[in-house]
Amino acid sequence: MYKFLEYGVYGASILLILIGLYAVLTKKSLIKIVIGLSIIDGGIHLLLITIGYLRQGTAPIFSPGFENAAAKMVDPVPQALVLTAIVIGFGVTAVALSLVIRLYRHHRTLQIDEIKSLKW
């Protein structure tokens, strides 16, 4: 059962990464490409969080009366990293969407085929 969970969690995050990559590589619409990029980000965040998981661990917050519970806490470092990574991913997505708006203004289309220099 536990083995199954392990495969499930890692498999799910890797599957998310692959789905995102598939969208980025094959989709023709710019919006879908941006969505693909954020799906990849989501998969990686899940992966990072999973690394810090501890079986029957508690949240890394010391509540009154439980000042010595450090041994049972999950790893807080990946959580902090994910917090940073989410914000950075958000910033990049915002810039990407603004570029998409600019491209739409210029070419009146979102299809990547009709925008000449994006094909290579």
């Binding site: 969970l5 392990e6 498999g11 690394i51 998981y53 501890l54």
Partner: peptide, 12 residues
């Protein structure tokens, strides 16, 4: 990727 991460283990 799956080969790498399934060898990683979960929850310890």
């Amino acid at each position: 990727l799956f080969e790498a991460f399934s060898g990683l283990g979960l929850g310890f």
